[in-house]
Computed example of a mutant assay.
Amino acid sequence: MDGYGFFVINGGFKLYLDPALMAPDFDRDYTWATVEDGDGYFTSEIEGKSWMQVVQQAEEDPTFFRFTSLYAEGVHIYFNYDPEAKTLTMPKMQPTGLSTFGNAIYVDAVAGKCTVDAEDKFTFTLSFYLADEEGNKTAELLQSTETFLWGRTPIDLLQHGKKIDDYVGTWVVPVENGEQSGKIPVTITKADGTTLLVSGLSLMDNYDDTMALMYDEETGLLVFGYQPVASIQGFDAFVAPFNSVTGQLTRTSSECLVGGFNKAGVLTFVNNPDNQGVYDSMVYAVTGGGQLMLMSGFWNYLEWEPYAPAASFGTLDKVDFSMGTKSVEEGIVSKRTYKTELNLQAFPVQPSKLSLKVQRTAVQGFSLVR
């Protein structure tokens, strides 16, 4: 039977309905369309990262929305938002596409802990848990605070309108090579009205590693992208956006990082939303013998703090050039890579204990217990 039917029994009939088709199916029951200018910046505590997220709206109910492929490819998370009533809720027991030790993870909103502020910042406090086949919660995993900036990008979090001279000075930059990490002082100077020069970023000894940041006069923000730098010991060299997780860099001219001050005054570089890939650092590299190699083995991260005289730079020393450093690949890393197996600690839900104690209930002098 295709989900329904009936049986004739002793002159009567028995109607059959498929329980699976009787259950709500938001994909099947609603028509979804991407919200124009609705894409926003989603920051996930449970994932430990941020990304640009698509939001769609149900044509049949203008207060019903979904985040497409939020935690896993093809698994959507649904929510209700009424801008007039200022209410933000979610359907219960939504599958996430995540798992822990092979067990499917579900999510509910924590009652009263989902809000929307005046700047359209959506804050979801979510409870992740395990459930049995009957839909009964069997174990709590964790609560996570997820935020969504409706219609905004990470660039909107940077301070606009800064002057080029505001960026001139010494900055403390975090660096790492996979085994060592620390902080180094980096100097930014002004070359002209739209160009800043950065030196000291490569960690190389006896090498002029000057590279450029372009200043956008309209926004007051900075732009960093692939650029050749001075050769070293006869090898061509360059600096480029880098993904330290996958070990891939890009020399595509359209891929770039955008820099500016965050609210705390830290010089922060973020991915341009128009990028095809995602990058978390900058790296100096060389070409030689048909290979790409990291120049010093180190890459630098994207939050640069203002220099203070008492700042500590760790124990990192300048390094000498050697073609024996790490090889690196060239390529564009996908904006979203899903890690669906989380291996979280589970806390079993204790069933409610049935009390056998007789309660004395008196009503107008009458007692159930004599």
Rank of each mutant, 00 (worst) to 15 (best):
E45T: 11
T123E: 00
F26P: 09
V173R: 07
M282E: 01
A308K: 15
A308I: 06
Q350V: 15
G40M: 00
W304C: 00
Q350M: 15
Y284F: 15
P154D: 07
F148H: 05
P19L: 13
A131I: 00
L267K: 01
L249H: 12
K326A: 13
Q159R: 15
H76S: 11
Q350D: 13
V223I: 14
S202H: 08
D108M: 03
D39S: 15
V172E: 04
L267W: 05
F65M: 10
E73V: 08
Y301H: 08
V198P: 06
L17G: 00
T340Q: 01
T100P: 01
F67Y: 12
H160M: 14
A285M: 15
V278E: 13
R152W: 09
V319W: 14
N243K: 03
S202W: 10
G11P: 04
Y78Q: 12
W171K: 00
T125Y: 05
F64N: 13
D208R: 15
T68K: 15
A33Y: 07
N80E: 13
N271Q: 04
V258W: 02
A264I: 04
A362T: 14
T325V: 04
V349E: 08
F242Q: 02
S244D: 05
D320I: 06
M93V: 09
L130D: 04
Y215V: 07
P83T: 12
L157N: 14
V107T: 08
G247A: 11
K137V: 05
W51K: 08
A311D: 13
P351E: 06
G290R: 09
D132V: 03
W299H: 15
W299S: 13
E255C: 03
N275A: 09
E73L: 14
T63A: 11
L257D: 03
P154K: 03
A139D: 08
L316G: 09
Y307W: 10
V229Y: 08
G200S: 08
L196M: 10
F269A: 05
G40Y: 03
E146R: 07
K263D: 10
V223L: 04
D166P: 04
R66Q: 09
A109D: 11
F67E: 07
V369E: 07
N80A: 05
G193Y: 08
N271I: 06
S44Y: 01
L356K: 12
E303I: 00
K263V: 09
Q291I: 00
G74N: 11
T68G: 11
V198M: 13
D2R: 15
F313A: 02
E133P: 00
T123P: 01
D39E: 14
S127P: 00
P95L: 01
S231G: 11
G12S: 15
P91C: 02
N272I: 14
K121I: 15
